[in-house]
Design a protein around this nucleic acid. Structure first.
Lengths: 207, 207
DNA sequence: TGTACATTGTTATTTATTTCACACTACCTG
DNA sequence: CAGGTAGTGTGAAATAAATAACAATGTACA
C-alpha cells in the first residue's frame, strides 16, 4: 500500500468527507455507485481506489461506511495528528482557519502568523496569531509540520525560506508567487486566478 | 489548436502571469529553462506547451515575452472579456474578490451575492453585493458567465441550481459540498481540506 | 569565417491514470 | 432452492501526460 497514486489520495480525502456525512445521517452501508454519484467520479474509479487501499467487502450490500472511514483514516492521518500553521492573516488566511478548525481531529491549525503588529498576539478566527519573527521558535515549540502560505506575493519567497529553515516538511502555497523547495519538502501550489482562467477557457470552448 | 491538454491550460495561465512580471521588469526575451525554473516545471514541458499553442521563434535567444503573452492571451481570453460573480461574501468570497479584481482585464468580477441583508446592496471589496434572490435577473443583465461559489456547504446545492437555471456555463466550487452539473456546464471543484490532507499524507510519507 | 555550443522543435518512449470487460458471488425472488 | 440480478474485484486496454532523445540551427567567439 506504499505507492498510492496521487489522484487517489485526493479522492480518498473526499470519500472520507462524504462518508462522515453518511455516518452522521445513520447510513451504515454504501454502494460504489452511490459514493461515485455523490462526487463526480465513476463507480469503477471508486472500486479501484478502494481496492488499492486494501479494503474489501464480501457482501454485496455495499461497503461498510464506518470500516471504510477507518481504513482511509489510517492512510491519511497519523496517530498523534499533525500540526499546521497559517502564515498571513488576511481574508484568505482567516477563511481557511475559520473553515477548517475543528473539522479534522488529526489535523490542527495551532498558530497563525502575521507581520502586522495590530494582529500579532491576538486571537484571530479562534487561533492565536504571532509575529512572523517567531516562526522559527514556534515551529519547534508547537511541532508545526505544515505551513499554509497566504501572504502577499512579494513576501512569499522570504516566508518560504523561513519555513524551510525552521524544518517544515509540507507547504501549501496560496500566494500567486510560484515557489520551489528542496527535495525533502512537499509543496502543493494553488492559484485562484489560474482556476478562474481555466474555467473561462472551457466556457469559451463551449460556445 | 483545438484540443489542448487540460494540464497545459493551467500552465499557460501560470506562464502568462510570470511573463507579465518579466515584461514589467523590462525583460524582453526568456529561455524555456528560465520560464521553467520560475515555476516547478521542466524546460521540455515549457517547450512542448509552447509548441502545442503554435508559437515558435526562429531565434535562439529565447521567446519574445510580449509575443508569447499575446499568443497565450488569444487562447485563454475572449475579445470582449468574461464576467464572473462571487456567490457568498464570507472571508473566502472577500479574499477572492480583493485578490482578483483588476488583475485581468478580460476577466471581471462584476457582482457578489449574499443572503445576509447586512451585506446586500453594499459595496464589498470593491464590488457591489446583491441579495441572492436577484441572481437570475442579474446574470442576464450583467452577462455573467462564471459563478464562483463560496457559500456555506448547506446552501451549495440550491445556489448551484439557481446559477445553472440562470444560464451560467462555468462554475468554480469552493464549498465542501461536491456538486454535479449538466454536460454543457463546466465545473471545477476545489476543496481546501483535501489539499491540506494531501500535504499531510505526503509529509507523513517523508519520514 | 568556421567551429563549438546552446537552444529550440518534435518524435518516440515511458509513466500515470482512467476506462473497459468480465469473472465471480451474495442476495433476492418466485 | 434454483435462476436471475446487481454488485464487487481486477487484469487488460485505452487514454492522458511527462520525459527522453535527438536533429536542426542560430549565436558567440576564437
Amino acid at each position: 500500500m506504499n505507492k498510492l497514486p496521487e489522484k487517489t489520495i485526493g479522492r480518498l480525502s473526499e470519500y472520507r468527507r462524504t462518508l462522515l456525512n453518511c455516518l452522521a445521517k445513520g447510513k451504515t452501508h454504501i454502494y460504489s455507485h452511490e459514493l461515485a454519484n455523490l462526487h463526480n467520479f465513476t463507480a469503477v474509479q471508486v472500486r479501484r481506489d478502494i481496492m488499492l487501499i486494501g479494503y474489501s467487502t464480501t457482501l454485496k450490500k455495499g461497503y461498510d461506511v464506518k470500516a471504510l472511514i477507518d481504513v482511509i483514516s489510517k492512510i491519511i492521518d497519523t496517530d498523534e495528528g499533525i500540526n499546521a500553521a497559517i502564515i498571513g492573516v488576511g481574508n484568505l488566511g482567516k477563511a481557511i482557519t475559520t473553515y477548517f478548525n475543528g473539522k479534522r481531529p488529526k489535523l490542527r491549525i495551532v498558530a497563525t502568523f502575521d507581520n502586522d503588529p495590530e494582529k500579532a498576539n491576538r486571537v484571530i478566527a479562534g487561533v492565536k496569531c504571532y509575529p512572523i519573527s517567531e516562526i522559527n521558535k514556534l515551529v519547534n515549540e508547537l511541532d508545526i509540520r505544515i505551513g499554509i502560505m497566504t501572504v502577499p506575493p512579494e513576501n512569499a519567497v522570504s516566508v518560504l525560506e523561513t519555513l524551510v529553515n525552521a524544518g517544515i516538511k509540507g507547504i501549501l502555497n496560496y500566494t500567486s508567487t510560484p515557489l520551489s523547495v528542496p527535495q525533502n519538502v512537499h509543496l502543493e501550489e494553488y492559484d485562484m486566478i489560474t482556476s478562474i482562467e481555466k474555467v473561462a477557457y472551457f466556457v469559451k470552448q463551449k460556445k
